[in-house]
Design a protein around this nucleic acid. Structure first.
Length: 114
DNA sequence: CCATTGACTTAAG
DNA sequence: CCTTAAGCCAATG
């Protein structure tokens, strides 16, 4: 609807999903891609995030790779920004990796498909 | 149009 | 969980 419809992109869909991620939770690029019907486009989700941090207020810090590793931390304002934000939401991070990622993991294909 | 790169994933060892 | 190799898709030059 509205003007978003015309400018519909894969990126826009990614932004919407990331914005739906609740605090204290995190998801993976592949999970988002899979939810959008493109399980092989996980890299493109990463591209979307790259554009997200400059175009929208998307909480990209809640998106990590499949094992909860903060792979994109270097793309933030500071390399520690991602870790700080996650810890602020109650997510424990150790050595740039989310602790108990399985418990923090938020799968849109399961949480939203209910 | 072709080659390279990248915030990834999966499979196999 | 780690490493190596291959696959996949979009952006960039």
């Amino acid at each position: 609807m509205k003007l978003s419809e015309k400018n519909k992109d894969f990126f826009q869909d990614v932004f919407e999903v990331v914005k739906l991620v609740p605090e204290g939770r995190a998801t993976s690029y592949g999970a988002i891609a899979k939810y959008l019907g493109a399980p092989r486009s996980s890299r493109v989700v990463g591209w979307a995030m790259n554009a997200a941090h400059t175009r929208s207020d998307v909480p990209a810090h809640r998106v990590t790779n499949r094992i909860g590793l903060l792979t994109g931390k270097m793309h933030f304002a500071t390399p520690t920004q991602m870790k700080e934000l996650l810890e602020l939401e109650g997510i424990a991070v150790k050595k740039d990796k989310i602790v108990d990622f399985k418990k923090v993991f938020w799968d849109p294909t399961s949480e939203l498909a209910i």
